[in-house]
Amino acid sequence: MGYIFILPGLLLVSFLFVGMFILGFYSFLTHDPFEFIIYEFTLENWERLLGTTGYYNIFVRTIFMALLITAISVVLALPYAYLTIRVRSSLVRKLLLVSLFVPFFTGVIVRAYGWLIILGRNGLVNSFLGLFGIEPVRFIGTQLGVVIGLLQIMIPFAIIMIAPAIQNIDRSLERAASNLGANRVSTFRHIIIPLSLPGIAGATIVVFTITSATYAIPALIGGGQVDFVANLIYRTLFDIANWPLAATFSITLVLVSSIVVLFVFQVIGTGTLGVDTGENDE
């Protein structure tokens, strides 16, 4: 009877596979400016993707930025999640939880416009820098601005994935490390991080997949200068109505993201089972 509960998940996955099959089918069709799609098979879309430097650069930028955001998010989320779980003061814990969940109460578009106000030429950051005689720094339309905007969105996801893993770590292990002379940094490095690998793996996968498919932040804060693949797909689909080429971009993004996720499973995921507990010494 228990298998009945997995039927909704199987049904959802089946719909996803159907959608991917349709996209794959469209990627081999011919584009026509008047009829949109002609059901004649061609490799032109894939040749155009592989032979156009501009498309290649956008894909490289998307993957690089997604990996960068993922790495920074996980590094910053680890101490925040640890402090949230281990802090003794209930007031501090509540404040940390509130600051974690408040961003989810507003949409991505609203937060993006908030960063436009903060990072704009006449925004709060440049106004503050102006007090010290520093010339305005350009954030909007730069990779730095996009990184800042994405980090504010992705760090909470990483914290939510890592916190349960830290919650499951036996505190006696930390006390034992302290009794053996380890300081807080050594304990965090040799106890907390290795035992948090399941959460780190989950955070890495979630943050990377969401970032690689993001649209709003690169479109608004990037100002059309730091486009991701999602922005390219949007323009291809709605500006020139080239559905087969847009399907090609979509399939390629899914394939590349899947390869990275599989790599994470291999490198970090297997490490979650590789913590030495002394049970396999025989």
Rank of each mutant, 00 (worst) to 15 (best):
I72M: 03
E279Q: 14
T30Q: 15
L95R: 09
I210W: 14
F263P: 09
V207N: 04
G133T: 03
F25H: 07
G199R: 12
W243S: 01
L49S: 05
F228W: 08
A112K: 09
S90P: 03
T211I: 01
A66S: 14
G224I: 07
L151N: 04
T270Y: 04
I6K: 14
V256D: 03
R121N: 13
L150Q: 05
T272W: 08
V102S: 06
A230M: 06
E47I: 14
A247G: 00
L245K: 04
E44H: 13
P194E: 03
T84E: 03
Y55E: 02
P156G: 07
V254P: 05
P218H: 12
L76P: 09
N183M: 07
Q167H: 10
L49D: 11
T142W: 05
A246V: 05
F21Y: 13
Y234S: 15
S89V: 08
I109Y: 15
P103Y: 03
I134M: 15
G269N: 02
I159K: 00
L29C: 04
G222L: 07
G133W: 11
F36V: 09
P164E: 12
S172M: 02
D276G: 03
I268S: 02
F157Q: 02
Y234G: 05
F41D: 02
I240P: 07
I191E: 03
L116G: 06
L144Y: 03
M1K: 11
I72W: 06
G54E: 04
I193M: 00
L173A: 06
L262V: 10
I117T: 13
L255R: 12
A176P: 10
L253T: 07
I205S: 11
A71V: 13
D239Y: 15
S99I: 10
L97M: 12
P79L: 11
G114R: 15
I221L: 05
Y234N: 14
I240Q: 14
I38W: 11
R189N: 01
W243D: 00
F105C: 09
I233D: 07
L50R: 10
Q167A: 06
F139W: 07
L144W: 05
S258G: 14
E135I: 04
L262G: 09
L245R: 08
P136G: 12
I37H: 15
G271K: 14
F128T: 10
R121A: 05
I148R: 09
L23P: 01
H190N: 01
F208V: 06
L273A: 13
R184K: 12
L95F: 15
R121F: 14
G114Q: 09
L78D: 07
V18W: 13
M65G: 01
I210F: 15
N183R: 05
V226M: 05
F208G: 03
F21R: 04
V260A: 09
G145F: 08
V98M: 08
V254R: 04
L180P: 07
L96R: 00
L232C: 00
P198R: 14
A112Q: 03
T30F: 04
T187A: 06
T106D: 08
L255H: 06
S27R: 04
G123V: 02
P103L: 02
A216S: 06
I205G: 04
Y215V: 00
S27L: 01
F238K: 08
Y39K: 09
F34P: 00
E282K: 15
N122G: 13
L10W: 15
V18K: 08
E135F: 09
